[in-house]
């Protein structure tokens, strides 16, 4: 449905998007995740036809986003990050205007408007001015406007930005509702947002794709660690007892208030179970163990690790694995 092939975008000296490629199948809900300035919004703007790529190809439904821009835009429902609206218009007036812009015939217009008003729970504010609406309602109007022509592709850029927690929950459940059989691209810099809603996550950082896959697939890239609590006299004593073990790549220790020491031991590979060798090492060193449990890296810390490092001077992107 959406396909990007080796897409680059430069703004003068700034290389904002560096060779991004991905392919989104119809019906997929994809989260585009990354810190601010990672190139997410620029990528989205190239898909919506707001700006052409410096090089590479962007296509939607087989149509080129630059050459067949108007046809592509007809297929997209887009909610921009700032959700800009005309403050002087009424909710119904704005939706009527959008319906007209998307070429919905007069005879179908009322039905189309009523449908999105229903879906986005706007019936109580239909005749209110946009300037007088709360942020949560404004966001729903933006969503309704993006849906007015029943587009097969829905692109939402930071849809919960600036909302309060109850509005966020509300908007999230609305988004899940709206997905249906649509292809959806949900841009966010907040992990839980996409983790809960999306089938697939694409992580952007420094203009390139750092990871691409299902949340489980991404988790499998995370580090496996073992948490140990033992009655070592000092943290160093515990480290020296464990350091010699094969398969251990790192140990972090902390002295606990009750005199015990906690160690977080990182394995070289995710598959090897370090619990048994650790237990043996502690027995050999005459240490008493009160806790020994495996711990998987959370998506959160994996994500933070993925987006941290700057790219090398070549700035080449790793080709994203399609799930």
């Amino acid at each position: 449905m959406i396909e990007l092939t080796q897409v680059h975008k430069r703004f003068g000296q700034v290389h904002a998007v560096r060779g991004v490629s991905f392919r989104i199948e119809p019906g997929q809900i994809v989260g585009v995740l990354g810190p601010n300035g990672a190139g997410k919004s620029t990528t989205i703007r190239m898909i919506t036809g707001s700006m052409p790529p410096t090089s590479g190809r962007v296509s939607v439904d087989g149509l080129d986003a630059v050459d067949d821009s108007l046809e592509v835009r007809q297929r997209l429902g887009y909610l921009p990050e700032a959700n800009p609206l005309y403050p002087e218009m009424s909710v119904a007036g704005y939706l009527r205007y959008r319906a007209g812009l998307f070429g919905i015939r007069r005879s179908h217009r009322a039905a189309a408007i009523n449908k999105v008003i229903d879906r986005c729970w706007l019936s109580e504010v239909t005749h209110r001015r946009l300037a007088h609406l709360s942020k949560g309602f404004r966001q729903r109007v933006g969503l309704a406007a993006a849906l007015i022509h029943d587009p097969p592709v829905l692109i939402l850029d930071e849809p919960t930005n600036g909302l309060d927690p109850s509005q966020i929950a509300e908007t999230r459940s609305l988004i899940r509702d709206l997905a249906g059989d649509r292809t959806m691209l949900l841009v966010s810099h907040i992990l839980p947002e996409v983790e809960r809603t999306c089938d697939r996550i694409i992580v952007f950082a420094w203009g390139e794709i750092r990871a691409d896959g299902t949340p489980d697939h991404l988790l499998s890239r995370g580090r496996a660690t073992v948490v140990l609590e033992a009655n070592a006299p000092t943290p160093d004593a515990l480290v020296s007892a464990l350091r010699a073990l094969p398969g251990v790549s790192g140990i972090e220790t902390a002295a606990l208030d009750d005199g015990w020491v906690r160690a977080t031991i990182e394995g070289k590979s995710r598959e090897t179970d370090l619990r048994e060798p650790i237990a043996r090492a502690c027995r050999d060193a005459n240490l008493l163990v009160r806790e020994l449990r495996p711990s998987k890296e959370s998506l959160e810390s994996l994500y933070l690790r993925l987006v941290q490092d700057e790219p090398g001077p070549a700035g080449k992107s790793k080709p994203g694995a399609t799930p």
């Binding site: 707001s50 046809e71 997209l76 921009p80 700032a82 800009p84 005309y86 959008r98 070429g103």
Partner: peptide, 14 residues
């Protein structure tokens, strides 16, 4: 200024 040019520019209006 208000950014509505973006929603206008991504509608099928040339």
């Amino acid at each position: 200024r208000s950014g509505t040019i973006e929603t206008l520019g991504t509608s099928p209006a040339s």
